[in-house]
Amino acid sequence: MSSTLPPRIRRARLLELAFGLFGLLLPGAAAFTLLVLMFDLVRSGLPHLDWDFLSAFPSRRPERAGILPAWVGSLAILSVTAALAVPLGVAAGLYLEAYAPRGAFTRLVEVNIANLAGVPSILYGLLGLALFVDGLGLGASILSAAMVLALLILPVVIVATREALRAVPRTLWEAAYALGADRRQTLLRFVLPAAAPGILTGVIVALSRAVGETAPLVAVGALSFIAFLPPSPLRPEPPYVDAEWLFSPFTALSIQMFGWLSRPQPAFHELAAAAGVVLLALALLINALAIVLRLRARRLAP
């Protein structure tokens, strides 16, 4: 029994327990802060959250104002961002991890990617303004915004991809090679599926960050008042799809919140909280989707 243990060991066990409690305290404090913030947001936002709020356009009257263009805009931007950043980021990660020759150039690229992950988001916005909005003439459109956000999260996706690839046991590569697979086959059929859960996690972290960004969207010309939706991506006649919506002016949830928070009327501040709840729900939804995809990928991985 512990009482019969020598004092030195007893003290060590006590210390062990104290350290364990301390370790529990740290994430506990983080989680508690998050919960308090969420509780505050939900408490002031929830009373305003109903179907009307989700389906109405912004208005000068708080009781009539809604976030329809904002959440449609956020969702549209997010999907285009993912479509651009994920293939590009994963491909770049694959190249750097499996193909790039070790040398000064590769080192340079790696250092730059690591640095890009730390650049403030407003700088990406200004780059987007000069390059996409004015340079390529894409205008203040959903596509411009998505391209900026894609650039913003690209370093995160690349780094996550590399980490995930590196975590795949070397033996898996060797086994594939031993069975006569070439490098492309090994990567696409064995390594990438095995690394998919890790890559997905990185992508989701990146997308969750993108969905809350405000500064770069302001820089590329997000609107504060817009009372119509982008044109539908589907058409009744062939070819049934239409890319016009990519060039539509837009607003986003974060922009709408920012605009409402800078109003003098307290009623608008509550609306901003309600929009915040929707933004939070959107981020959680993306996370949930990631978990589902990850579990599926894990089950199907070789």
Binding site: S79, V80, A82, A83, L84, V86, P87, L88, V90, L138, L143, L188, R189, L192, P193, A195, A196, I199, L200, V241, A243, E244, L246, F247, L293, R296, A297, R299, L300, A301
Partner: peptide, 23 residues
């Protein structure tokens, strides 16, 4: 599953590129 997810995303990217021409 991994291949499926990446393949679909690639298709979307191609659609996005094609639409620049439509712009």
């Amino acid at each position: 599953a991994g291949g499926f997810a990446f393949g679909r995303a690639g298709g979307l990217a191609a659609a996005a590129l094609a639409s620049i021409a439509a712009g």
